[in-house]
Design a protein around this nucleic acid. Structure first.
Lengths: 119, 119
DNA sequence: GCAATATTTCAATAACTTTTGAGATATTGG
DNA sequence: CCAATATCTCAAAAGTTATTGAAATATTGC
């Protein structure tokens, strides 16, 4: 992840419809959601949704595949974790107090689910 | 950190000058940098810099204090780590594969410096 | 092949953001 | 107090992004 990719990703996430779309897709997991389902959930017109999905796709945050008449979108998890890594990358240059709380939040979130996965 | 704050923060970071300013301030640490120093480093006019610093301040990513004739800016580390926590918040809802790589990057970055700190 | 469904494209417009430069304000040293 | 320094404010212009609605494209079931 370089600066330009990070800026594209931040721009993509800096819009309410798109941030909600990304969160919905992360929640939906690898199966993703059809464009129509996202439009219905977001109360947004299909052409406007299409515009936002393209922005997200260009930013590398989501991918799409066709399934019959629908286009299914899913989150690019590596892009999201790469963005976090990019933000954190500079944080520790002598100042671990930046990432300590982030690391704690992340640790709490992941360890609580790891047990679920194992089950 | 709620959705609206996250959007403000993403908007603030979605601009090359501002992203560089934030990174420079994180690197500079708690002492921060004077507006003039940032302008010189970024090759940007003082009025344009002032505009961007206000955007960052409104987004809660930086704070300012006056020191004699200069205004010193510094990064709000808690806002940055809060943003990471917000991005990660939804990630684990059954999908730890999102945060595992982010957690690894974060862990690598922090553990390598912790020893430095201890010294 | 035709009608129905799902999504995208396009153009117009509205809304917002960035840059510029001129001038205003605040602080200090002499 | 005055001149110098540092930063901010404001308005205009340029550039970018979001929304809308109509029309185009792709896929399927009959």
């Amino acid at each position: 992840m370089d600066e330009q990719q990070a800026i594209s990703a931040f721009s993509a996430l800096a819009q309410a419809h798109r941030l909600r779309i990304v969160r919905a897709l992360v929640e939906a997991g690898p199966d993703g959601l059809a464009a129509g389902a996202l439009a219905a959930a977001g109360g947004i017109s299909s052409s406007n949704l299409s515009f936002h999905l393209k922005e997200l796709e260009h930013a590398g945050l989501v991918r799409s595949r066709r399934a019959s008449r629908s286009i299914i979108y899913s989150a690019c998890l590596t892009a999201l974790s790469g963005l976090v890594a990019f933000l954190m990358q500079d944080c520790c240059q002598g100042h671990p107090e930046v990432c300590a709380p982030a690391a704690a939040a992340l640790a709490a979130c992941c360890t609580s689910k790891e047990s679920k996965l194992d089950a």
